[in-house]
Amino acid sequence: MKAAKISIFMSIAFIVLAWGAPGISFSFSHAPEDPKDAFLEDIPDWQARLELARLLSYTERYEDSAAQYKKLLEQKPGLVEARLELARVLYWKGDMVEAERIFSSVPEDELSAEARLEMADIYVARGEYEPAVEIYNRHLEKYPGDHKVRLKLAQVLSWKEDYEASAEAFRTILKKRPDDIQVRRKYAQVLIWSEQFDEAIKELEKTLTD
């Protein structure tokens, strides 16, 4: 009788151990899923083509670059980043009509943050500052530390003659990067345009070592 009780106890204990032992649960039920390793995956043709199209545009082979983007979009028509990049290449190439057509077919709400900035740059190139400022501002709400974009914003604001807002953006950058001479000189330029000559002189003096 006693032996039976012990064996019942041992059986229950085994069940408890098997059910609850952390090692077992680590191994099976709760192990976080490991992400797939990108290095082990085959890289699709379209990815290689996109990279090629970009490189061709960097080397100013706009014709070839546009041809690659077009092939890519035949393969992947939903790739909005590629559509946007093609529009930019066509602008650089001087094919304004085609660039306009493609640019207007890009659905802004489907763009990634990076592509949205790209779109803002294209707006700037077209002299449409308002939508560019809007995109930069939205980006800076999310990433206030992105000084590169804030600098673009500051410059665009100055081009649309909103000197006060531009100077404010420059001051925000200079607070974080007081030793950036180029930014300070651009800031001084904005002060000159807004006829704040004394302030501009002070800022320019700060950029001169002697």
């Binding site: 229950i12 204990a13 408890v16 609850g20 952390p22």
Partner: peptide, 20 residues
């Protein structure tokens, strides 16, 4: 029995995390 089971439940995870 119940006490021993509770003890097991409490000590097994602890022991496991110490050993492994």
């Amino acid at each position: 029995f119940a006490g021993l089971l509770c003890l097991l439940l409490a000590t097994v995870p602890w022991a496991y995390t110490r050993i492994h």
